[in-house]
Each structure stands twice: as structure tokens, then as C-alpha cells.
């Protein structure tokens, strides 16, 4: 069942984009839309959107870079390590949980490292990869998405994102312990 689902989703993810192109353009052709002209008209905005997010992205990534390079993460891990045992979370996976919302490349590096050291099919390896799949790079998403529309007052977006991250990490710990311990 799991294998079948995996293959199915894999196939879908390969053919999805060509299929979408076909559907969009084909539908447009049937509805007698001047597809080329309309496409170019819409594509014009691409440049502006990308340029608009630069200041937001620079601000966010530079702050995350400073935090990561300073060794503050190691300090945070020492402080939090006693707590993780209580919820059944191996302390080795704590850097993963903390890095996931901050940096995609950083958490990818941690996941790879954990699998190299502990093996991909160990509890730690499974938990790290589940954690990686259980959340998005929240702060990157915030910076980019709000950047495009020049939002400065983010209201409750940050607490919401953090609640979602914590819930995702706790759920990952719970389900992996339930199934693989």
C-alpha cells in the first residue's frame, strides 16, 4: 500500500506541471483567448515581484545567518536538552527541530548529518526526516510572502507560524515514537 502510494504520488509530481501547462493553455485556446499575448502580459510582473522581495529576504536571511554563525544554537540546545527527554524526543534531534523553521539548507544539512551518524533507519534518522517533512521554513515563507506585498505589520502571523511549527515537531515526535520505538 505504502509503495503503491509512493509510486502514484511520484508519477503525479512528474506529470503535474506538463499537465497543468496543457490544461491552462488548451482551455485558453478553446475559450479563444489570445494565449501568447495574455501570457506575456501576465509574465511582465515576474521581475517586479522578485525584485520587491529582496530587502525583506536580505533582512531575514542576514539575521538568521548571524544567529547560526554565532554558536547561539549550541547554547540553546544545552539549555533545552533536559526538557526533550520528557517528551520522548532524542536530544540529537533537537537541532533539527530548532533549525527547521529558520533555514531550509541548515535543516537539510542537519538531517543528512544525523543519518550519516545514526543511520537512516534508526529512530533518530526516522524522526529527523519526519521532522523535515513536517514543517516548512516558516521565517523564509514569512519574509518572501509578506515581502511581495510590502507588509510591515505582520499582526498574528509570527505566533501562528511558531504554533504550527511546535505542533508539527511534537506530532512528529509522537507519531514516530508510537510506530517505531
Amino acid at each position: 500500500m505504502g509503495e503503491f502510494l509512493k509510486n502514484l504520488v511520484e508519477v503525479i509530481s512528474f506529470i503535474a506541471i506538463p499537465l497543468m501547462f496543457l490544461l491552462f493553455l488548451g482551455w485558453g485556446l478553446i475559450k479563444k483567448v489570445k494565449v501568447y499575448e495574455v501570457f506575456v502580459e501576465g509574465a511582465k510582473d515576474g521581475f517586479n515581484v522578485a525584485i520587491r522581495i529582496i530587502p525583506y529576504l536580505v533582512a531575514m536571511l542576514a539575521a538568521i545567518g548571524i544567529f547560526r554563525a554565532s554558536g547561539a544554537m549550541e547554547l540553546l540546545i544545552t539549555v533545552l536538552a533536559p526538557v526533550t527527554g520528557l517528551i520522548g524526543m532524542p536530544p540529537e534531534t533537537l537541532p533539527m527541530a530548532l533549525m527547521r523553521p529558520l533555514s531550509g539548507s541548515g535543516s537539510l544539512g542537519i538531517m543528512t548529518e544525523l543519518m550519516k551518524v545514526h543511520g537512516p533507519d534508526s529512530l533518530i534518522g526516522i524522526m529527523a526526516s519526519t521532522m523535515y517533512g513536517s514543517s516548512e521554513t516558516t521565517f523564509y515563507v514569512l519574509a518572501v510572502y509578506f515581502g511581495t506585498v510590502s507588509i510591515k505589520n505582520t499582526r498574528h502571523a509570527v505566533p501562528t507560524g511558531i504554533i504550527a511549527d511546535v505542533a508539527g515537531m511534537l506530532a512528529a515526535v509522537w507519531i514516530v515514537n508510537l510506530l517505531f520505538r
Binding site: M20, F21, L23, F24, L25, W27, G28, I30, K31, V33, V35, V38, F39, V40, E41, G42, A43, K44, D45, G46, V49
Partner: peptide
């Protein structure tokens, strides 16, 4: 954005 514009105009 180009694709989306086409889909929008076509009513998809």
C-alpha cells in the same frame, strides 16, 4: 504569472 493570467482569462 503568465500561465495564471491565461487560466484567468479563459475562466479556468
Amino acid at each position: 504569472l503568465g500561465m495564471m493570467k491565461v487560466a484567468e482569462e479563459a475562466g479556468l
